[in-house]
């Protein structure tokens, strides 16, 4: 019985590490990171080899990938989408502006960073991020899952 108790969580962790489904939400950024994130799906990068799928519905996703400094209009939506994702869930902030506001800091309509609103698990800086950096960010986030 003792052994079984240890095996089951291990299997769960393994499964979670091997199958992180992402939900992409543009929280008010320029298109730069978004198109780089989309190009992860394409032959040059192909994140499906890590088991990562780009899901359409928040209820199917594990990782919320946000790009952008969180504008005032997007703010309630972002919170709502985060709440719709079933536990366990993680948040990845992609791009300098979603990490800290970046080039837009000081603008009147932005919150300046995802972490002002949601608990962020991994930051991917870069303006815009290269696809390799985003993959690295997702993989590091996945590896940190306990």
């Amino acid at each position: 019985m003792e052994k079984n108790k240890a095996i089951l969580p291990n299997i769960l962790t393994w499964a979670r590490k091997k199958s992180p489904w992402i939900l992409h939400f543009n929280s008010g950024g320029c298109n730069g990171c978004d198109i780089e994130l989309l190009s992860l799906l394409t032959p040059s990068y192909d994140i499906e080899r890590f088991g990562i799928l780009n899901e359409a519905s928040p209820r199917h996703a594990d990782i919320l990938v946000c790009t952008g400094p969180v504008t005032e209009q997007v703010r309630p939506r972002l919170k709502r989408i985060y709440d719709q994702i079933p536990e366990p869930k993680w948040v990845l902030a992609v791009g300098s502006c979603s990490c800290s506001g970046g080039v837009f800091s000081g603008a009147y309509n932005i919150l300046g960073g995802i972490d002002k609103l949601l608990p962020v698990d991994m930051y991917v800086p870069g303006c815009p991020c290269r696809p390799e950096t985003i993959i690295d960010g997702i993989i590091k986030l996945v590896e940190s899952i306990q």
Binding site: G28, P69, V74, F104, G106, A107, Y108, N109, I110
Partner: peptide, 9 residues
């Protein structure tokens, strides 16, 4: 939704 206020900035 993406209005950041770049003109003002």
């Amino acid at each position: 939704y993406v209005h950041r206020g770049i003109e003002k900035l």
